[in-house]
C-alpha cells in the first residue's frame, strides 16, 4: 500500500481512480481558501487529510461534493467529470460525506433521517405512497441504524439525541445506499474515548471497496484507519506519504503534531 509516484499518477488518469482533483481552486472574494490542489485517490483507498485550522480541508470537501462549487479546476469521480454537477448528482453517483458540525433533520426521527438518506439515492424520491413495512429501504435503514448502535433511540426525534448519538447518525447517513467513496469531516470531534473506539471499529470494518478521505485532528484515530496521508497548509498540499512517514517527518512534527505528540 504505497502511494503511486506523481508521474505514475498522471499516466493513470481516467484509468480507475475513485477521485481525481486537478488544479482545484476556491476563491472567497480575493482570498484563496484552497489553491491549485491536485489529488488522486484509488478505489478503496483510505486517506487522511491533515492540517491546521484554516488549511482548507473542509473547503476541499465542499468543492468535492459541490456544496460550494470550485472556482476553477476539474473533479473526476470514477472517471466521470462531475465538475459542473450539482451536489445531488454527485451523491447519486456514490459520493457521500459527513459534516463537521452535525447536519441532521432535527424535527424528524432517527429512522426517518436514515430512511431519507436511503431514499435520496434510490428511485421514487417523489412517491406519494407510504412505504410498507416490508419495504427494502426501510430494512436498509433499520440495518444502518443498528450498525451505528442507535436502535434503542430509533423512534426519537433527532433534536433530542445526545451529541455522540448525533455524530453516529451523521455517519449512518453517509453509509446509506451504495456508497463508493465517503468524505468524513472530523467524525471523532467531541466523542468520548469509548465512542472513538466504536468509530474506529465502524471505519475499519467498512467493506474494502469503499474508499474514504478523513479529516481528523485526533492522530490516534486518523493514522489507525488510513493507508495514506495528505498534508495541507494554507490551502495547498505540501506533503503526501504513508502514515508512518508522516508521523516521523520532523517538519510535520513541528508544524502540526506539536509538543504533545512529539
Amino acid at each position: 500500500m504505497t502511494l503511486a509516484a506523481p508521474d505514475d499518477r498522471l499516466t493513470q488518469m481516467n484509468s480507475g481512480n475513485a477521485l481525481e482533483l486537478r488544479g482545484i481552486t476556491k476563491m472567497f472574494g480575493a482570498l484563496a481558501a484552497i489553491a491549485d490542489v491536485t489529488l488522486t485517490v484509488r478505489p478503496g483507498e483510505r486517506r487522511a487529510v491533515l492540517g491546521s485550522n484554516g488549511a482548507g480541508k473542509t473547503t476541499l470537501f465542499n468543492c468535492i461534493t459541490g456544496d460550494f462549487p470550485a472556482t476553477s479546476g476539474i473533479i473526476r469521480f470514477f472517471g466521470e467529470d462531475v465538475t459542473a454537477f450539482p451536489p445531488y448528482e454527485r451523491i447519486r453517483r456514490g459520493l457521500r460525506r459527513t459534516y463537521q458540525i452535525s447536519s441532521l433533520f432535527a424535527g424528524l426521527t432517527v429512522m426517518d433521517n436514515v430512511y431519507l438518506a436511503c431514499r435520496g439515492v434510490s428511485r421514487n424520491r417523489y412517491s406519494l405512497l407510504r412505504p410498507r413495512s416490508d419495504d427494502a429501504l426501510v430494512h436498509a435503514a433499520e440495518t444502518l441504524v443498528e450498525a451505528v448502535n442507535l436502535t434503542a433511540v430509533r423512534d426519537q426525534l433527532v433534536g433530542e439525541l445526545a451529541y455522540g448519538q448525533q455524530r453516529q447518525l451523521e455517519i449512518a447517513l453517509a453509509l446509506s445506499g451504495a456508497p463508493r467513496f465517503i468524505l468524513f469531516d472530523e467524525p471523532a470531534a467531541g466523542l468520548s474515548p469509548t465512542e472513538r473506539r466504536d468509530l474506529v471499529t465502524i471505519l475499519t470494518s467498512l467493506p474494502s471497496h469503499i474508499g474514504y478521505i478523513i479529516i481528523e485532528h485526533d492522530m490516534d484515530v486518523a493514522l489507525r484507519v488510513v493507508e495514506s496521508v495528505t498534508m495541507m497548509h494554507n490551502g495547498r498540499i505540501f506533503k503526501e506519504g504513508l502514515p508512518s512517514e508522516i508521523e516521523d517527518d520532523p517538519e510535520v512534527q513541528e508544524l502540526y503534531l506539536g509538543g504533545g505528540h512529539g
Partner: peptide, 11 residues
C-alpha cells in the same frame, strides 16, 4: 429543516 443536507443526500 436543512436544504443543504438534503442536496448532500441526493435530493
Amino acid at each position: 429543516d436543512n436544504p443543504r443536507r438534503m442536496a448532500a443526500l441526493g435530493f
